[in-house]
């Protein structure tokens, strides 16, 4: 229902961004986010729906820590 990928903004022209995803350059609408060049954005069907707060790679480590705390393990 929600196929989306995280792309890296290379440049912005008006309300559209040129985004790099693993070497593929595609266009994304920016009308529903506040984004700038260099941001990582979540793109669904050609439109950015969120700007990432931190790099994805760190995320799993943080999740493990949170789960540990939540269940006192």
């Amino acid at each position: 229902m929600c196929l989306a990928i995280v792309g890296h903004i290379q440049s912005i022209q008006g309300s559209k961004a040129k985004v790099n995803y693993n070497g593929n350059i595609l266009q994304a609408e920016l009308g529903i986010v506040e984004a700038k060049e260099g941001d990582y954005i979540l793109i669904h069907a050609g439109c950015a729906i969120e700007v990432l707060t931190k790099a994805k790679a760190l995320e799993l480590e943080d999740l493990f820590k949170e789960l540990q705390e939540a269940f006192n393990e």
């Binding site: 196929l3 990928i5 995803y21 693993n22 070497g23 593929n24 595609l26």
Partner: peptide, 12 residues
């Protein structure tokens, strides 16, 4: 290939 995998992710 990395770009092929990327395209597959984009288009599902």
């Amino acid at each position: 290939g990395e770009e092929v995998r990327g395209l597959c992710d984009i288009l599902g």
